[in-house]
Each structure stands twice: as C-alpha cells, then as structure tokens.
C-alpha cells in the first residue's frame, strides 16, 4: 500500500484502463462544453492518446482547523467556521485579505452552483452552506445567480446555466468508492449515477469532463469537522467511528484535496486499529483521476500542504 491507499495492482489496472479523458480541474478556466459521456465509460473502446498535461508543478491544499469549530452541543459554530473559511482561501490563493481571495474565485456576472452533499448522517452543515452563499454573493454574484443543491443539480436552473461551481462535501469512508471524495461529489451531475460504480468507482474522474461540469470548478472543500473513518452495513455509518477533528480541507485541485483526505483517514484508521487497516474498498479513483484523467495531483510530493490553526491531533 502507498500512502494513497492504492496498491500496485490498482495502479497497473488504472493506467491500463481504456476510455477518453480530457484534462480539467479546479485550476482550469471555464472552457466550451465538449461532447462527453453522460454515463460511465464504455468498456473496450480504444484508448486515445492522453491529453496535453497542463497541470501546475504542484497543487496547494490548505488544512485549517479550530478546536472551537464545534460547540458544546456538537454543532458547528458559524463564527468560527467563517474565520476558518476565510483564513483557508486567503492561504490557498496567497491573497492579502478574504475579500480579495473570494473576488479572485468568483466575479460579478457569474452564475454559481454550490454542489453540496446532503448525506443524512453527516451532511454539509447548513451554516457552512450559507456562509459559502454569502461569500459568493459578496464577491459580486447576484443572489438569483447562486444556488445550493445536491441531488437536484440536473434539474436546478441555476446549475443548468452555471458558469462556476463550488464543490463542498463532508469527509467519510464510502461503501462504494473507498472515500466520499470531492471527485465523487459530482456523481449527481450524471443522469445515471450508479453507472459510475464499476471497479470501486475508478473512473469518477470522468465526471469532470461532463459538459455541465467541465472547467467550471473554482474551489473544492472537504468538510472534516467530524469525519467518518470506518463504516459497515447498509448505511456505512457509526457514530463511534466519527471524531471531532474540527477541520476544513480546501484546494482548487480536487485530486489533491482528496489525496490529503485519504491520508487523513488512513492515519486515523492506523491510530484506531493499531495497524495499517486498508479501506474495505480501495479509494483508487483518486489515483486514477491523476494518472488517467490528469485532473490534478495525488502524489504527496506534488502537493503543498499548508496547515493553519489547531495542530494537536492533526494526524497529517
């Protein structure tokens, strides 16, 4: 196992896989829509030559934590969350102030879809969703041009005409894909979500070439306030397998954000189980998104991890 949770067989299988891929990611500016599969990739098609690699040398990821992120009742504190969020984007973009950072991400006249996640056991906190909405609007985007949605994105008129996306989800292990990743959060942009489940969801990177998605994502956030590090059964949830981490992981490269998230869950599992405990399902799709779809970087040496705030128990 590497620290990405992938073994050599996974890697070989990934690079040998077939199917078209175009490089898109959080770093890329908006691009014209191209024809892309609406469902999972077809098997047996000849592999076209890989696209030119336009990724930067390294991707920056910010981990910001605050011990006070969760109140005594276990609910997120909106004021603390706001500070974490602003500190995070400032560090991510190297901006002088939060307003400048948000203004760099979203501009007046844009239409912004905030792709959230409503998984009932650990949803994205409503307080965080509303903070994101407020920050996008403060950057000059009209209120009517911002929407927050998860399972209804394909029918949502704002998402249908969106020029920019913000990808936010909670961090957890996942029954089908190893981890619930920012990459996977876009599965609801497919009319047939289950068609991406093959081979541990290896090809989730392909979602990012769907016309409704391609080139639009400006920010990816893994909400690690109370991550889930292990699960079993039909709901893959146990309150005892969550912990108060008080963190947000932010980046413009979804692969890098997810790779850091994998490392965090691996570290927590090692701590809890007292040994390297492989995920029940390999999160290989993160590596495949790097190697096949060239969406960003999963290799640790390609990721610049900036850590802010509470350091005790950071694990990574």
């Amino acid at each position: 196992m590497t620290d990405q949770g992938l073994d050599r067989r996974d890697f070989l299988k990934a690079v040998a896989a077939t199917g078209a891929a175009l490089a898109v990611g959080c770093q890329k500016p908006a691009a014209p829509a191209v024809t892309a599969p609406a469902a999972g990739p077809a098997v047996g098609e000849p592999a076209p030559p890989p696209p030119p690699d336009s990724r930067p040398e390294r991707s920056r990821v910010v981990l910001v934590r605050d011990q006070a992120a969760l109140g005594p009742d276990g609910q997120p504190d909106p004021a603390v969350l706001a500070r974490m969020l602003d500190d995070g984007v400032v560090a991510l973009l190297g901006a002088a102030a939060p307003a400048m950072a948000w203004g760099e991400l979203f501009r007046p006249g844009e239409v912004v879809g905030i792709k959230s996640n409503v998984w009932r056991f650990i949803p994205v906190p409503a307080a965080l969703e509303e903070l994101l909405r407020a920050r996008v609007q403060a950057a000059g985007v009209a209120a009517a041009d911002v929407a927050i949605d998860d399972r209804g994105v394909l029918e949502n008129p704002v998402f249908q005409r969106a020029t920019a996306l913000l990808d936010v989800r909670t961090l957890r292990t996942h029954h089908w894909s190893g981890i619930g990743s920012c990459l996977k959060n876009y599965i609801m942009f497919s009319p047939e979500p289950s068609s991406w489940h093959e081979d541990a969801c290896a090809d989730l990177g392909g979602l990012w070439e769907l016309p409704i998605v391609r080139g639009k994502t400006r920010l990816c956030i893994q909400v690690a306030l109370t991550p889930l590090f292990h699960g079993k059964g039909p709901h893959h949830y146990s309150a005892e397998y969550t912990w108060a981490y008080g963190g947000l992981i932010l980046g413009r490269d979804p692969v890098a954000v997810d790779a850091v998230a994998v490392r965090l869950l691996e570290a927590k599992r090692r701590l809890h189980f007292g040994k390297d405990e492989p995920f029940a399902v390999s999160p290989k799709h993160v590596r495949v998104a790097q190697d096949k779809y060239r969406l960003g970087w999963a290799d640790p040496e390609r990721i610049e991890l900036v850590k802010l705030g509470w350091s005790e128990g950071a694990l990574i």
């Binding site: 292990h230 699960g231 079993k232 059964g233 709901h235 146990s238 309150a239 005892e240």
Partner: peptide
C-alpha cells in the same frame, strides 16, 4: 456488534440497528 451498531440475520431478514449518537 461493531462500532455501536448491531447487524444480524434470521430467516429471510437481514437487520441493521444503528444509533445516531453515543
């Protein structure tokens, strides 16, 4: 018993019992 949850099968039934807190 696993992580506070209970899973079992009996007859034609598979059953999951999951507390939402501790």
């Amino acid at each position: 018993r696993q992580g506070g949850n209970l899973f079992f099968w009996k007859g034609r039934c598979y059953v999951s019992v999951v507390p939402l807190g501790v």
